[in-house]
Design a protein around this nucleic acid. Structure first.
Lengths: 253, 253
DNA sequence: AAGTGGTCTAGACCACCTT
DNA sequence: AGGTGGTCTAGACCACTTC
């Protein structure tokens, strides 16, 4: 009879909430502004705090919000574009490299890395830790695996301490002729150590960029770089990359 | 005195749970195998269902699990690598294109797209919907925006219906000389229509690849492609890209 | 000390798929 | 009809930051 079936697929509350909040962010808030706390927001929308949090989580995943424990929830600035494709058609550590070497330890790598490097289980592989900063914020942490066979001239005496040894390894790498690289991007969640370096909680969503450096017809080095997914837009290709953002952007006073 | 402060930073339950489950997946389960249901698993580990779900969500985000309402939770196969960088240094729709045209509607695009295309608010822009299938599974949905000025010879009479008109637009595009492209990758969540096409729920995590096609010194077309983040590894560069996976892989019987 | 977001619980009901 | 995952509630306590 008269029971017209509108809303045959009822929208979940948190989904509708997300839409409402998203529009409010565009029209009523400025970048950097602090939102009301979760308990107040939940009460205002008449939902449980867990439901509100589900909406906030999505908005944070999309880079619209930033939440910090003990502080509050703020409107996030647009994502920063970080170049990962070109601009560095060279070895890590070459001219114009945006990475900063942290330290370097010789150790047997994880099994999956050893397989990709085609090294035996007992071959030593240098693990270089590097970090990348953009606009004052840490955006990525990297583990660069360099098998000993790629830097045969390196002697342990060259550099006793952390960052110095890392730079020595990178310098030795330049002696090889780079034949090509290929990369892959996938979604992951931050390990505890990466999370600390990226100023996020463990499990935060990250974009994992795995790059293989080819020389001498084999994989001469392998980089696993972990980018903050909430704040970064990875750009590839000729120039900067496209920025598609949703609404008006204003600056907090 | 004796109260040695181990575990000064107590690990959250869901995080520990995730680790335990992850190891169990490596050693005791095969790809495609069905896990016990959430209520049983929660009881077995002595936690609330919500806590268990927090762990499962992370594992799904990392591509280790696949959950389907009404069915159950299964062990996911390794992510498929999908090439997005090279292999198609040509216009969309050219030889070897892996995309399948769905339909095409002339309409005013979203404001953000119009800005990137540098078109006026009243210029008509063809919106071509395409989909990409890999190994029998839908992996991506694309919206390709082509301003009318990029396909001046196109007449509406050429192709009355959906897919045919889409192909006509792509064909006209080939007449321009492609000068370059640049792309950006970022994390997003699936809109309702994309989610339906990707066989996921709305809000599912996706990798959004935005590509600008340059010709005549301007942006001649703009592609916004939405890839399933749980099942895809985007590869760029010379060859296939590296696969780093955690543990042993077996096949379900 | 007070206020914030992060974790956790023990329930309830719903939408979807299989049988 | 019965079982699955998805949504939602109303609380509680904890970790962290700021005052």
């Amino acid at each position: 009879m008269g029971t017209t079936q509108l809303e045959s697929v009822p929208e979940p509350k948190y989904w509708h909430l997300k839409t409402v909040l998203s529009e409010a962010l565009d029209s009523e808030f400025s970048v950097g502004e602090i939102l009301p706390n979760e308990r107040d927001l939940a009460a205002r929308f008449g939902v449980a705090r867990a439901t509100l949090r589900q909406a906030l989580e999505q908005l944070e995943l999309e880079g619209r919000l930033q939440r910090r424990r003990g502080v509050g929830t703020t409107v996030a600035p647009p994502r920063v574009g970080v170049a990962v494709g070109t601009e560095q058609q060279a070895w890590p550590g070459g001219a114009g490299d945006v990475w900063q070497a942290v330290d370097c330890t010789p150790a047997a790598p994880p099994a999956a890395v050893a397989a990709a490097l085609e090294t035996g289980p007992d071959d030593t592989v240098y693990t270089v830790r590097r970090s990348r900063v953009s606009q004052g914020q840490p955006v990525a942490a990297e583990l660069l695996y360099v098998p000993e066979s790629s830097v045969p001239e390196l002697s342990a005496i060259d550099a006793p301490s952390g960052p110095a040894r890392a730079r020595a390894v990178l310098r030795e790498l330049q002696r090889l002729e780079l034949e090509g690289r290929d990369s892959a991007v996938e979604l992951g969640s931050a390990r505890a150590d990466d999370a600390r370096e990226l100023d996020r909680l463990p499990g935060a969503p990250v974009l994992v960029v795995t790059t293989r450096f080819l020389a001498d017809g084999r994989t001469a080095a392998l980089s696993v770089a972990t980018y903050r997914a909430d704040t970064c837009r990875l750009t590839f290709g000729d120039s900067g990359g496209v920025e598609i953002h949703q609404g008006p952007e204003r600056q907090a006073s």
